[in-house]
């Protein structure tokens, strides 16, 4: 008798591959080949994973419609099935897959929109923490300010794109009627953060994005400001500090 692992392999082989025939060791009621019965499992696996993809990428689904999204996501599922039972994290490779999928290649921003959807979910399920207010800065002597480093909210995620992905993502996610975007609109940088219950997406000016990302990657206040000022002489540090605390990005000052 074949081992359980072997039996399981035969059963599993066809679940994500429609070209594989029904395993031979299975019985229907009268001993007939239980093709339809085995297909129930095939359907359960594919449809439930497709549902998971639809739940993770609602904006990509809305932009493409199910006629294009479903076959694309199904192919993704077959090529890159999940490896963890925690499906809230499934779909990491989808943006890259989108950028190589023939039928959607003419939509250059689509992969970046999919990345936004993944980051949104990471922020949604991210660790909880209490942000601190800007007043906390006043406990530090002015001459030590430049040396300060900050601990950022664990739910914060940054994303920069040469497309206006923040606006595309936002209107398709939340508006009943999608707001048309100016075709001339350039790239956007987005910060996803969840200071309390709700995820908030901030579309950031380029200089602010650069500054906050530096802070988030543990630059000191002085070093971050200096770096941004060389690239953006108009950079307003006072405003940036206000925004940084207003967004709830800071949970601790070192």
């Amino acid at each position: 008798m074949p081992s359980h692992h072997k039996i399981q392999s035969r059963f599993a082989d066809g679940l994500l591959n429609p070209d594989v025939e029904t395993p031979k060791n299975l019985l229907g009621l009268g001993g007939e080949e239980p093709k339809k019965r085995y297909n129930v499992y095939r359907n359960n696996v594919t449809i439930s994973l497709l549902e998971s993809m639809r739940a993770t990428f609602p904006v990509v689904l809305r932009l493409l419609g199910p006629q294009i999204f479903d076959p694309m996501a199904t192919q993704f599922i077959r090529e890159f099935p999940p490896t963890s039972p925690v499906l809230m994290t499934y779909g990491d490779g989808f943006p890259k897959f989108i950028s190589t999928y023939d039928r959607v290649k003419q939509i250059p921003y689509l992969a970046d929109v999919a990345s936004c959807e993944l980051l949104y979910l990471q922020t949604y399920h991210g660790k909880d923490a209490d942000p601190i207010a800007i007043e906390a800065l006043s406990t530090h002597a002015p001459e030590t300010m430049a040396e300060l480093k900050f601990e950022c909210h664990p739910s914060a995620r940054f994303f920069a794109s040469k497309w206006p992905v923040g606006s595309i993502w936002f209107t398709n996610k939340f508006d009943d009627e999608v707001k048309p975007l100016n075709a001339e609109r350039g790239g956007e940088s987005v910060l996803f953060i969840r200071p309390q219950m709700e995820v908030i997406a901030h579309i950031l000016a380029e200089d602010l994005h650069k500054f906050l990302s530096l802070i988030a990657s543990n630059s000191s206040l002085g070093a971050a400001a200096e770096k941004v000022l060389t690239q953006f002489p108009e950079f307003d540090l006072q405003n940036a500090l206000g925004a940084m605390f207003h967004f709830g990005l800071i949970t601790k000052i070192h």
Partner: peptide
């Protein structure tokens, strides 16, 4: 039931033969 096979998570409750081997497993 089983739901994972060789690192792949299949997201369904899949059937197993009821044998002495599977009982031990």
């Amino acid at each position: 039931a089983w739901s994972s096979h060789d690192e792949i998570y299949l997201n369904d409750l899949l059937p197993l033969p009821l044998t002495v081997e599977t009982l031990n497993i």
